[in-house]
Amino acid sequence: MSLDADVLVDRRRLRRSVTVWRVLAVIAIAAAVAALFVASGAGDGFVGKSTPHIARLPIEGVITDDRDTVDRIEELADNDAVKAVILYINSPGGSTTGGEVTYNALRRLAEKKPVVAQIGTLGASAGYMIALASDHIVAHYTSLTGSIGVLMQYGQVHKMLDKLGIEVDTVQSGPLKAEPSPFSTPPQAAVQMLQGVVGDSYDWFTGLVSERRNLDMATVRGLADGRIFTGHQALQAKLVDEIGGEMAAVDWLGKSHGIDVKLPVRTWSTDNELEDLPFASRIGHGLVQGALSALGLKDAIPLDLAGPTQLDGLVSLWHGSNLPDGAGQ
């Protein structure tokens, strides 16, 4: 009876050992396939977009000063296979600096190849700022856009602390250092300082609208009180050029720049790099994922370690964006 038990234990150990080696072999093969494909140049580096096409660049969610997005825009500018770029914008905005950095990168791109913006459900505040970098803006009739403006918010908790009997003392190098503070009523000088910062950024934003949309500043100031517009209203206000979707954007590229409208439209994404991988590399990725599943590690590695986005500094953001589909609530 003891002998049978020993044999059973040995068999289990052998079975586990064989499974581990099989998994390691699958990983090695997958890595070799991916490495050979990339080394051959068939995948045009990591992205694998080597044949002529129109690139679709999604700008979605809250906009931040994102190096990955800028890098992707620079890749688009340098890739000869990209004949034109469609910015697909579905964003409530974000940090003003994030919008500025992305805008500048897109203007550099537009100096090399045609760029058209297509606003989806929402393209407001910094989202609209980014659309201004294009040569033509298309929006749906019911898209939400506009919300031209800048804001800075700060919280106040000193009344609650007074009720709890809590005091917060501060030693500061100057009267405006760390102001406004949530622990005391802000002095008027601090409020005026923030208003000056917001006003300076607002002047820059409205100047951008005036320049890019060929509107006089008085007209822009009348539109830039923070209000949102439907695509139809924005067309009437000359904030967008056309009502339509991606087909309208492609048609404009053909009519205005002679781009072949039959070229495929391919997504260049910074969020889902797997979509940009060539077929052989996706196979390799699938094999690796299968191997991780066999080891019970597939869910052990989180896909997003960045955590929730936090906006610091000046903000160009439409707060109604937390509503379903951006409207109707």
Rank of each mutant, 00 (worst) to 15 (best):
I301S: 02
S281C: 11
D276P: 03
P264G: 03
Q310I: 14
L295G: 14
S281P: 08
I301Y: 01
L311G: 00
P264H: 08
S281Y: 02
G286T: 13
W268L: 14
L277F: 12
I283R: 05
H285Y: 14
P308E: 03
D304C: 12
G307F: 00
S281G: 04
K298F: 04
L303W: 05
L287H: 00
Q310V: 10
D304H: 06
L311P: 00
D271G: 04
D304V: 08
H285N: 08
D304Y: 06
D271M: 12
Q289T: 00
S281N: 15
G307V: 15
G296Q: 12
Q289C: 00
A300M: 13
L287K: 07
G290I: 09
T270C: 08
P302Y: 01
L292K: 08
S269F: 01
Q289D: 01
S269Q: 08
V265Q: 04
G284W: 12
Q310H: 09
A300S: 10
R282K: 15
S293V: 09
S269W: 05
I283D: 07
T267I: 08
P278H: 03
L274I: 09
G307R: 02
P264W: 05
F279N: 08
R282F: 13
L295F: 13
V265D: 03
I301M: 06
T267W: 01
T270K: 12
T309R: 05
L274N: 08
R266L: 14
K298Y: 08
L287W: 01
T309E: 03
L305P: 09
T270A: 12
P264E: 02
P278Y: 03
L292N: 11
R282L: 15
G286N: 06
A300D: 05
P278Q: 09
L297W: 10
L311C: 05
I301K: 06
K298G: 15
T309H: 11
G313M: 07
G313R: 10
E275C: 01
A280V: 15
K298W: 06
P308R: 06
Q310A: 07
Q310W: 07
G296H: 06
L274E: 15
L277A: 15
A294R: 09
G307Q: 02
N272E: 11
H285P: 05
H285L: 07
G307W: 00
D271I: 04
R282W: 00
L292I: 03
R282Q: 14
H285I: 12
D271S: 14
G313I: 11
G284P: 10
G313S: 08
T309Q: 07
A306T: 14
L292P: 04
D304A: 07
E273R: 01
A291K: 10
D271L: 06
F279L: 15
P302V: 11
D304N: 15
D299E: 00
A300G: 05
V265W: 04
L263E: 01
A280W: 15
K298A: 11
G307T: 10
V265E: 05
V288F: 04
T309A: 09
D304S: 05
L305H: 04
